[in-house]
Computed example of a mutant assay.
Amino acid sequence: MKQPEKIQTRKDEVRFKTSDTRRIIGKYLAANVLKTWKEDFLDESTGEVITIERHEILFERGKYIDNDLATQINFSIQAEEIKEVEVSNQRRLATQNKRTGLYPYKVSASIGMKRHNFILQAQNVTKAIEVATDFIELNFTQSFDITGVKLMDDVVILNDRLRKYVEAQEGANEAGEEADNAEEQRGDVKYYKVEAEVAIKAEDEEEPGKTSYDFIVRTKDVDTAKVVITAWIDAKVNERTEKDGDERKVVDISILSASPFACNAIVEKAFCMAYKDQEEA
């Protein structure tokens, strides 16, 4: 009776780095083999010499290493173009994107007998689950299951922390800025998904440029959501003006659609940042 083929997974992978080409025959390259060198260039505008690191792919990831390829690799090692290669007993070609920034995610969880949705920021799905798990363990008492994770690309998350731009109101301090828990104290916490079109005009433009944005806003109503969005956009325009010296102004902000959004909490960015991988120097 024919024995079924053994299913290969990462659990069965044997991966290692070596400069001994006798050990790599019959394996696969686990990563691109790069020749790296540095070149100096003169910046004519400043007279400064700039050093740039250059790379050339000598051998591509996933290639089977036979005697001929092992000889070529050995030649590159002897020529000091490379120091070693990383090999595997499995042929793996796809690579997961390395995201360095934080992206918005919606994480759903069944906590006790209720469904909860959380908005948070993370580098990838794995990190999003870690952030949500940590947050739930700290803020709930029942057992739970993570039931869904969705990337909400191109969505801007706004907690209503910009009330300092709004007139002082009940629950606010003298500057008009509310305490972190003011909404809970008033019992008017709501979440809205808002699509807005923003017209911004630069000094040298005859007509303003229009850009569409999607927001998830934690606030009390749609009118206040527009105020919060306006404050965020004004802050971004002012930030760009200070950075580039390009005078710009917001001509109009149109709310194209606004609807309640099923959400139980927006996890603070500072909490999410604890799970962000440090960028390599």
Rank of each mutant, 00 (worst) to 15 (best):
Q78I: 13
S19K: 05
D252S: 01
L158T: 04
V189Q: 02
D223Q: 00
Q96R: 07
V189L: 10
V237S: 02
L256Q: 13
D68T: 13
N139M: 09
D214C: 14
K249S: 14
F59I: 02
Y105Q: 08
A79F: 10
K38F: 08
E183N: 01
P260N: 07
I266A: 00
G62I: 05
N124V: 03
G62R: 09
E205I: 01
N74M: 06
K6F: 08
T71N: 14
T46H: 06
D180Y: 03
A274S: 14
V166Q: 12
T224R: 07
E178W: 14
F75I: 01
N238H: 11
E197G: 10
V250Y: 08
G176Q: 06
E247Q: 00
D223Y: 09
D188F: 03
V33Q: 02
F261R: 05
N117I: 01
A274G: 15
K249W: 08
T36S: 13
R54G: 01
A270W: 15
D154Q: 09
A31Q: 06
E130K: 07
A31S: 03
E207M: 08
S88M: 08
Q96N: 13
I50K: 15
N89G: 12
A109D: 06
D214L: 15
D244Q: 12
K83F: 13
R240D: 15
N181S: 11
K2Q: 15
R186W: 09
R240Q: 13
F144K: 11
Y213D: 03
T36W: 14
L256S: 08
E39P: 05
R92S: 02
E178H: 14
P260V: 10
D43A: 04
K276G: 01
A109H: 11
R61Q: 03
D20F: 02
I65T: 06
M113K: 09
D20M: 04
Y28H: 09
D180R: 00
K63R: 00
T100W: 01
S257W: 01
G47F: 05
